[in-house]
Design a protein around this nucleic acid. Structure first.
Length: 203
DNA sequence: GAGAAGATCTCCT
DNA sequence: GGAGATCTTCTCA
């Protein structure tokens, strides 16, 4: 397995219990973790530096606000599953399902800092500028080759998962703000980002 | 079935 | 900073 090692360290996917918690807590704690995607023998990975929390009935900005639909049903299912949707005719967005089964919730991954597979990401993005590879939800899915086909995948095991950052040995400066790009429930402070990262989509 | 909105990105001014 | 691209999904009649 390519993904059993990363930068010389043994890596283990976060377990289901990490995701089966309050969406806001999961969104906060995902900052600094590492997203890993093994694809065609290539290992792509990146440090998560920006997330947003989306709830259900109490969150007008969430896809789950009006109840279950064909698209959002994953959000009502088991935690630790990927929810990928297509938007604006061009872009995919990657979410991670949270909360207990039956309670809708998901964390949108808005930005990453590339760790491995940078050449593949640059090829897919058609960009040479390193800093613009994955600094937005649509950009990172393009760089990682994530589409709706990857919705419903189990993030607690290979080849697509999140792991602890082994190189993180001290507290990181996480900031909170309102969410971006939405027209409803704008005032809710549910966006989390790594203050020191240049890959955050909007400072 | 039609129309509108959209958790975005990129290019142009 | 603003607007267009582009097409899926949802709502409403």
């Amino acid at each position: 397995m390519v993904s059993s090692q990363l930068a010389g360290n043994k890596i283990v996917p976060l377990g289901r219990s990490f995701y089966e918690r309050n969406t806001q807590v999961v969104a906060f704690e995902l900052i600094g973790k590492v997203l890993v995607f093994e694809q065609n023998g290539n290992l792509l990975s990146g440090k998560i530096v920006e997330t947003e929390a989306y709830f259900g009935a109490n969150d007008p900005a969430s896809h789950a606000y009006r109840g279950v639909t064909l698209r959002n049903r994953v959000m009502f299912g088991r935690a630790g599953i990927s929810y990928v949707y297509f938007t604006y005719g061009n872009h995919h967005c990657l979410n991670m399902v949270t909360e207990a089964e039956g309670i809708p919730g998901a964390v949108l991954i808005r930005a990453l800092e590339p760790i491995s597979g940078v050449q593949i990401m640059q090829k897919r993005r058609g960009k040479i500028i390193y800093g613009q590879l994955t600094n937005g939800p649509g950009k990172l899915t393009q760089a990682f080759g994530i589409t709706r086909e990857h919705s419903g995948m189990d993030l607690t095991k290979e080849p697509f998962f999140v792991t602890q950052n082994e190189r993180q040995d001290q507290p990181i400066p996480i900031r909170v703000s309102t969410r971006i790009g939405i027209s409803r429930a704008k005032q809710m402070p549910l966006r989390f980002y790594l203050q020191t990262s240049s890959f955050v989509s909007v400072h």
